[in-house]
C-alpha cells in the first residue's frame, strides 16, 4: 500500500509536466487544426527563460542588498515572468511560422513546426554552447514522511501549481469572451470573423497561452530535475503530444487527464518491468487504448472543416 501510494505521488508529479504541455498541443489543434510540433522545444525555451529570469532576479536581489526575498516568492515571480516572456515566443512562432501557411497543405505546417524546433535547439546550442546549465535552487527541499510515503515540498508545489494553472485555464476558456471565441473557433473557424472577432488575435492568444503553460512546465521541470539541455524538450514534447492525442484532439479536459494518465502508466510500468522496457510497454498500452477509442477520450469524430 505504501509502495503504491509512493508511486501515485511520483506519477502525479510526472503527469503534471505531460498535462501542462499536452494542453498547449490540444488548444492549438482545437482552434487552428494544426499540431505545433515545435511545442516541445517551446517547453525547453521556457525552462531556459526561467533559468535566466531566476539567475537575474537572484543577482538583482543580492546586488541591491535587499532583504533577501523568500525563495517561494522568487519562484512565483520567475514562473510568472517566464510564462509572460515565453508567451511572446509562442506568438512569434505563430506569426512568423504558421500564419503564412494557413491556407497551405497541412504537411507544410508540420514540416515548419519541426524546423522551428530544430532552430530553437541549435540556436540554443550556438548561443550557450554545449554545456548544461543547472537550474538555481530557489526553494530548499523539505521532506515529509506521512505513513511511510515520502513527499517533498517541491513535489507538492509542482502538482499544486500545475492544477492551479489548469483550473485558471479552464476558467479563462469558459468565462471570458476570448475563451468563448476560442471555443467558437474550434467549432466553426470560418464563421468567427462574421461575429466581428479578429481571427488572428485569437490564434495568437491560443499560441501564447499554450506556450505560457509549456514555460511553467519547463520551470517546474527545472525545479525537479535541475539540469537543462537544448534537447530536453524532444522526448517530453513527443510524449505530451501522445497525451494530447489520447485525451482527444482539441479537448482541454482530455489533455489534462491523459497527461496525468500517461504519468501513471509510465511510473507504474517502471515499477513492474525493467526500466529499459518502460516506454515500449507504456506506449503499447496507449496504442491499445487508441485502437478502441481512435478519437481519444473526449475527441470528436468531425475534423473536416467547412468553408463558408
Amino acid at each position: 500500500m505504501e509502495f503504491f501510494l509512493q508511486n501515485v505521488v511520483n506519477a502525479l508529479q510526472w503527469g503534471s509536466f505531460y498535462a501542462l504541455i499536452a494542453l498547449g498541443y490540444s488548444m492549438v489543434y482545437g482552434v487552428l487544426l494544426l499540431f505545433n510540433f515545435a511545442h516541445g522545444d517551446i517547453f525547453m525555451v521556457g525552462a531556459y527563460v526561467g533559468f535566466f529570469v531566476a539567475t537575474g532576479l537572484l543577482l538583482l536581489v543580492s546586488s541591491l542588498g535587499l532583504v533577501s526575498m523568500p525563495g517561494w516568492v522568487v519562484l512565483v515571480l520567475v514562473i510568472l515572468v517566464a510564462m509572460f516572456i515565453t508567451a511572446f515566443v509562442g506568438v512569434a512562432v505563430e506569426r512568423i511560422g504558421y500564419r503564412p501557411l494557413r491556407q497551405a497543405p497541412r504537411a507544410s505546417a508540420a514540416i515548419t513546426g519541426l524546423m522551428i524546433g530544430i532552430i530553437f535547439e541549435t540556436g540554443n546550442l550556438a548561443l550557450l554552447g554545449a554545456r548544461r546549465l543547472s537550474f538555481p535552487e530557489l526553494i530548499e527541499t523539505t521532506t515529509y514522511t506521512i505513513g511511510g510515503v515520502t513527499v517533498t515540498n517541491k513535489r507538492i508545489m509542482i502538482v499544486a501549481v500545475s492544477l492551479l494553472l489548469m483550473f485558471a485555464l479552464h476558467q479563462f476558456v469558459q468565462r471570458t469572451k476570448w475563451g468563448m471565441a476560442m471555443r467558437a473557433m474550434a467549432y466553426d473557424f470560418a464563421v468567427v470573423p462574421l461575429m466581428g472577432v479578429p481571427l488572428n488575435s485569437i490564434a495568437a492568444l491560443t499560441f501564447g497561452l499554450g506556450s505560457a503553460l509549456a514555460a511553467a512546465a519547463g520551470i517546474l521541470f527545472g525545479v525537479a530535475y535541475p539540469v537543462l539541455s537544448p534537447y530536453m524538450g524532444i522526448v517530453v514534447g513527443w510524449k505530451a503530444f501522445v497525451a494530447a492525442i489520447l485525451g482527444g484532439r482539441g479537448s482541454i479536459l482530455g489533455a489534462a487527464l491523459a497527461g496525468f494518465l500517461l504519468g501513471f502508466i509510465e511510473i507504474f510500468v517502471a515499477t513492474i518491468f525493467p526500466s529499459t522496457l518502460r516506454d515500449l510497454i507504456a506506449f503499447s498500452i496507449i496504442l491499445l487504448i487508441l485502437v478502441f477509442r481512435p478519437h481519444g477520450f473526449f475527441g470528436e469524430a468531425h475534423t473536416s472543416r467547412l468553408r463558408l
Binding site: 467558437a184 474550434a186 464563421v191 462574421l194 463558408l308
Partner: peptide, 12 residues
Amino acid sequence: HVPEGRRIFGNL
C-alpha cells in the same frame, strides 16, 4: 452576415 446553413456555434 447570416451565412447559408445557419452555422451557429453548437458547442456554445
